[in-house]
Design a protein around this nucleic acid. Structure first.
Lengths: 147, 147
DNA sequence: GTAGTTTGGTCAACGTGGTTGACCAAACCG
DNA sequence: CGGTTTGGTCAACCACGTTGACCAAACTAC
């Protein structure tokens, strides 16, 4: 039963997150996009590296970048030191979306903390860390989900 | 941070589940299919009702049923009492997949319990139940995830 | 320095899971 | 009986993923 509850918890929270983001001027930001913006990060990256970070093929990563470029969240630029590489960077709009995601995410986490108590939340996080691969997602990328 | 850990936990567990199911003769069973078989249940249902249970449109439910029929997990039959309805039922093969899913799922849950201790798992489940809609997924459908 | 290999990006074809809109026939209801 | 609701399907489309093929730039080795 636990895993179904995990999924339910995650889904409802992500739904809440994007409903609030839509209200704040980012109606087109889909659940996946937040993770992609996080993985691109303030330093930028390339499509292949993005695929590695997200665990998908470079082609899939490239197509997702295409969509986010079309939406104005990302931009591509040539790498002066390697003509093969195309750097992918956050636009100011993309940075705004990323920051708002982080803020709303923290607010929602705060709600959980109020409902359960800070000690309970910390205990659950600690437990989960023990049974899940710590770096399945790049939890260490700064600036996101760092509540 | 908690929600990302929820997702990581769910993903890794579902991946483990389907790796084991592939070993047991169900290599084509995708993560979604288990939920669909569960929602169909031993009593059978219709495409529209299935859509309601899973929270998707009747068309999407119908297409998923098509695929599971093609794979041999489900079958369609006419409803003698309502010529509009097409009953969707588990085939023996589908029932086998459903049962194996339940067994493997329980084994994986057992691993979590061993790692955390039964009291910790019970406490987490209790906590999550408090902050997630209890019936987001039909947790009350008997015969699945009833560890 | 030229030849062979690795790497980054893209294109094409395809599969899966989802949407909305249109439509038909059967059932229900006044 | 006539109008509305319901169940199923078809069509078009979108998001996200896959593999395979391919090209050009970069690296490596002789």
């Amino acid at each position: 039963m636990l895993p179904l509850l995990l999924l339910a918890g995650f889904r409802t929270l992500i739904d809440d997150l994007h409903a609030e983001l839509a209200r704040q001027g980012h109606p087109e930001l889909r659940p996946l996009h937040g993770f992609v913006l996080q993985a691109v990060g303030t330093d930028g990256t390339t499509a292949s590296e993005l695929g590695n970070r997200l665990g998908v093929s470079k082609q899939a990563a490239g197509k997702t970048v295409d969509r986010l470029v079309a939406l104005g969240y990302l931009e591509r630029a040539d790498d002066p030191r390697d003509a093969r590489r195309k750097l992918v960077r956050l636009t100011p709009y993309g940075l705004d979306g990323l920051r708002r995601s982080a803020v709303v995410f923290d607010e929602l986490r705060q709600r959980w903390t109020e409902a359960l108590g800070a000690d309970r939340v910390a205990a659950i996080e600690d437990d989960l860390r023990r049974v899940t691969p710590a770096n399945w997602f790049r939890l260490d990328i700064p600036g996101w989900f760092t509540g």
